[in-house]
Amino acid sequence: MSLLEVRGVSHRFPDGRTALREVSLSIESGELLLIAGPNGSGKTVLMKHLNGLLAPTSGVVLLEGRPLADCLAEARRRVGLIFQDADAQIVGQTVREDVAFGPENLRLSEEEVRRRADAAMSAVGLLGLADQAPHRLSGGEKRRLAVAGVLAMEPSVVIFDEPFAALDYPGIRQVLREILRLHGGGHTVVVITHEIEKVLAHATRMAIMSAGTIARVGTAAELIDVVESYGIRRPRLDARGIRGITWLT
């Protein structure tokens, strides 16, 4: 059984625009799935279906075989979303308060909230900035704060929406290291991006979205030669092949 399964999902907005058409995709436990596609291909709308922020117009999303609508609270706890705009995800006045937001919503005891917040901040290297105002952090630190806010809820799946947008080179490396650390620690990770060269070397599988559909699913090696035809820049390979395009060397 897949950890998350999207089965024939379509989504139409009230203004009549169709964002997803009959999308089917499974996400397996422990994988690092890259979902690539140009702007407007429906990547973010699909992401919002994966923890029940949006409900499908038709079709169903399953969490370990159960429809999300039947276990919405559990789905939101277990499937953590990290949005493209890290600023919009910040709701706390200090780093600690922001990280504690999720555990407080789970109505955990004050001690447990503190324990989880400390553990999450420590995991992303922000414990030293616990009393700092979040909007004073750098771009990379804000992304790590968003990761900590999700980690404090102890999710099984972490989904990043355009995690490298508007980051400088050190910021991209920080976030990429964080993604790999989560994956190495046993989390299922989904990275949604059009900048595939930043994460392709580390992805276990890749899906390409185009005009609201899943156009192709396969390994990076299988799909790298067709990405250009879907409006995604093909990374240049050296002698080492796909493994050689990592940003972490």
Binding site: K48, N51, L53, A73, R76, R77, G80, L81, F83, D85, A88, Q89, V91, F101, G102, P103, E104, N105, L106, R107, L108, S109, E110, V113, G149, V150, M153
Partner: peptide, 18 residues
């Protein structure tokens, strides 16, 4: 965007308070 982010983190009115 903030409302979406709050919902994604299981927002409820009656949360743990200090």
């Amino acid at each position: 965007a903030v409302v979406s982010a709050m919902e994604a983190r299981c927002y409820v009115d009656e949360r743990t308070v200090a």
